[in-house]
Nucleic acid binder design. Structure first.
Lengths: 353, 353
DNA sequence: CTGAAAGCGCTTACAG
DNA sequence: CTGAAAGCGCTTACAG
């Protein structure tokens, strides 16, 4: 059923013919290269406009044999489904764009070890790259890398968390504050008159700060409420060992017997869920991230809602943005916030990260 | 920062060199064209495997000058935001693939006028096309078109609603039954002990059948509940005039004073919302589709939840699937269910259709 | 400031 | 059954 394309009357050849110049000259004008008289340039530009010329990117890439290298710096995905998904998204993007002569170097750091990030940032030269995709889990080194990109005029895209104020091509990730509000609104829809517990679990101070942004949004929602404002209890756990977490939650629940709902500000909600299941505790439980353990407890009915942040899509969009900006010349929005996905037992089977 | 690609040692040329044949023969083997001795064929295939040859699609398309035409049949998008979004998704896909020599013909029918669909299907020849994207709002004619596609060996993709049993390349759209379950679960999370009203609004019998699938899922959720099973009231409105709808809802609410939540099985939830707002009725209200009016009432707090069905993505994926199947040779999944998106006042600003 | 020619990796008649 | 040659739309040295 395939047809042959009619020979193009809108390519460089046609422009050259009309302008009475060679196609080399047309090419110079198209790419704003110097060495063309203003007169010829004007004439050619007019014809380009007239026939609505759009260069054939396939042919262009094929002929130029240009290659672009991108650098990706994200957390290790071993044993971390969230970052595994992000990594997968990057691969999916790469599969689509590699035809265009793109190569990608990935570097991974350990999310639980700030030093691994420091070392990585310090030991990696960004000079050979045409773009950098960075998950800046740690602030100071993120800033350092960002300024190096700026000095070298290399486009930089942040995924998953932003470094506000730094000069980046784009930020692709969640609006943490608003996702906290969302969690609050769900809990508010379900509770009667009990208290609500907020649980932050994190060891590294940098990640703890991210959790605080969610907590802020969560609190703000209730503050903005005209009527019923439940009491909010807060529990900070600066340790990720399960026994410690369980113990602290246990104590807290003893102390506040009428807690009706619990909001865990990250994917560690699985630990609380496990504890609830063991102890046969039945409270509204809301947390983050569609990872295996969490989905298990969602299906069990222990977790009521998960908030998804689309890690796969973040990775996909991150690399794709770099490609589109560099190769296609597309305009990339400065902020690309992920949707705040609400996942329940009923829709989880259709969810795409 | 762009680099030159090193001359490829993995293309047809290299294969030809190693096999001691011309590249024309290599090309014949790659495309399974006849006229090659078994011996040569085997040798070439081995080399292809060995060097992991992957044809350069850019070069292939450029040289072959092949064109593919796709036919799109969907409802008119004038005054219908849902189908406008689908149409937009198709355009977005087209923008990405047109480089490859793709052309798309769109035909629109009137969703409120079955005859327009009948006429369209009967008057359109599918023969010139390499693929058809169809939103089969009306059953019988959908089946007719599907069999014509089958006869002519033209791949067919359904969007938004399926015709089960018909031989299609893919279905891309919602799982209606499960989305009804989702609505039920949200309502169940919020209600205390009142009754629940189900409202189906539709004139055409074919679309009414779609609504019933959602109602089935909705009822099934409550049936599966071990404990609390609220009374379910049902209201069928086979008319789309607002006065009629308001009157019938009004009567129903009179008759059942303790209705606590209302589930409207399509985007007409806006009409109920308008009525609720006018009458200062405060009940849980859940409906479908992220369109302007519904979003307005969501933000007002009149509608509690909207269920989104990603019309834009349906359109995008529909055309993209056709392209990938026909041009790239990708395997397309038979079913691509859209996620069941839960939209609230808090996350609607980040929602992408 | 401008053009002729070769080439990107693949496909397509055409000739044998 | 097989190959030499031209060409897709563009880019790139090179020469002038």
């Amino acid at each position: 059923m395939d047809k042959k394309k009619s020979s193009s009357l809108s390519g460089v050849k046609e422009i050259a013919r009309r302008a009475n110049v060679s196609i080399a000259t047309v090419d110079r004008v198209i790419h704003n290269r110097k060495g063309v008289s203003q007169e010829t340039k004007d004439k050619i530009n007019e014809i380009i406009k007239e026939i609505g010329f759009q260069p054939n990117i396939l042919a262009s890439r094929l002929a130029s044999k240009k290659t672009n290298r991108f650098l990706v710096i994200i957390p290790q995905s071993a044993e971390n489904e969230y970052w595994e998904a992000c990594n997968k998204g990057i691969d999916r993007s790469y599969a689509e764009i590699k035809q265009y002569g793109i190569s990608v170097d990935k570097r991974f750091y350990d999310l639980d070890n700030k030093q691994s990030f420091v070392k990585l940032v310090d030991s990696t030269s960004i000079v050979p790259y045409d773009g950098v995709l960075l998950a800046p889990s740690f602030f100071d080194e993120g800033v350092r890398l960002a300024s190096r990109c700026k000095e070298n005029n290399i486009p930089l895209v942040f995924v998953n968390s932003d470094i506000p104020g730094e000069d980046s091509l784009s930020y692709i990730g969640p609006d943490l504050y608003k996702s906290g509000r969302q969690a609050a609104s769900l809990i508010n829809f379900g509770i009667q008159k009990g208290k609500v517990l907020i649980v932050n679990i994190s060891k590294e101070i940098d990640t703890y700060h991210h959790l605080l942004r969610k907590e802020d949004g969560f609190r703000a929602y209730f503050n903005d409420l005209p009527s019923k404002q439940p009491a909010l209890i807060k529990l900070d756990i600066r340790d990720t060992r399960e026994e410690i977490i369980e113990k602290m939650v246990d104590e807290c629940l003893q102390q506040h017997p009428n807690i009706e709902a619990v909001f865990v500000t990250n994917s560690r909600v699985r630990v609380i869920a496990r504890y609830f299941e063991k102890q046969h505790i039945d409270k509204i439980l809301v947390g983050y991230d569609v990872i295996k353990d969490n989905v298990h407890y969602l299906k069990q009915g222990v977790i009521d809602f998960l908030i998804g942040q689309k890690p796969e899509e973040q990775g996909y969009r991150g690399l794709t943005s770099l490609f589109q900006h560099t190769v296609i010349g597309t305009n990339i929005p400065k902020y690309c916030f992920m949707p705040i996905d609400i996942i329940t037992k009923e829709n989880v089977e259709f969810y795409r990260n």
